[in-house]
Amino acid sequence: MALEQQINEGIKAAMKAKDEARLRALRAIKSAILLEKTAEGRAGELTEADEWRMLQKMAKQRRESMEIYQQQHREDLARKEAEELAVIEEFLPRPMDEHELKAALQAIIQQVGARGPADMGKVMGVATRQLAGKADNKVMASLVKELLQQG
């Protein structure tokens, strides 16, 4: 089932259950989908990779906001962000563990023929496309750097 359909079904279920936190998060996702679909240069359809990228961006925003609210001792607002983050993460694919990610990155390094740290851009270009939604780009970049320095 497409993400948009899942979100619409989730909104109906959350409304029936009177689950305000879930409803708020699902409405935010639906809004982001509509904005992405109507963005300039879009044909009105999103690929799975586009959906993952959008959801990852939303999750990252919630994490950062939550951190800021906690630093400012605003636990009420931090809790709202955490509730929304939990719902958003339900729609993201399971992230790869470090072992799986290293294996995938080593395969990409061999595929592009990278020899050292100077080839990091080539590796990251392929890795971000192939592993979209499955791993955090910061984690990927640090692992690629580590692997290229070893090899």
Rank of each mutant, 00 (worst) to 15 (best):
M1R: 10
M1A: 12
L3H: 06
L3T: 07
E4T: 06
Q6D: 11
I7Q: 06
N8G: 01
E9I: 08
E9P: 01
A13M: 12
A13N: 08
K16P: 13
L23T: 06
R24Y: 13
L26A: 06
R27K: 13
R27C: 04
A28V: 07
A28C: 03
A28K: 09
I29V: 15
K30Y: 01
S31P: 00
A32Y: 02
L34I: 06
L34M: 11
L35P: 02
L35W: 05
E36L: 02
E36Q: 10
E36N: 08
T38N: 14
E40I: 08
R42S: 15
A43G: 15
A43R: 12
T47G: 09
D50A: 02
M54C: 07
K60C: 06
K60A: 14
Q61L: 10
R62Q: 14
R63A: 05
Y69A: 12
Q70L: 14
H73C: 09
H73I: 12
A78E: 04
A78D: 03
A78V: 02
R79M: 05
E83V: 03
L85D: 00
A86W: 00
A86Q: 05
I88N: 00
I88F: 11
E89I: 08
E89T: 08
L92M: 03
P95E: 13
M96L: 15
D97M: 08
E100C: 01
K102C: 02
A103P: 00
A103V: 13
Q106Y: 01
I108Y: 08
V112Y: 02
G113M: 01
M120C: 11
K122H: 09
K122W: 05
M124N: 09
A127H: 11
A127T: 10
T128W: 07
T128D: 09
Q130P: 15
K134V: 03
D136M: 06
D136W: 04
K138H: 15
M140T: 05
L143N: 05
K145W: 08
E146C: 03
L148V: 09
Q149N: 13
Q150L: 15
G151N: 13
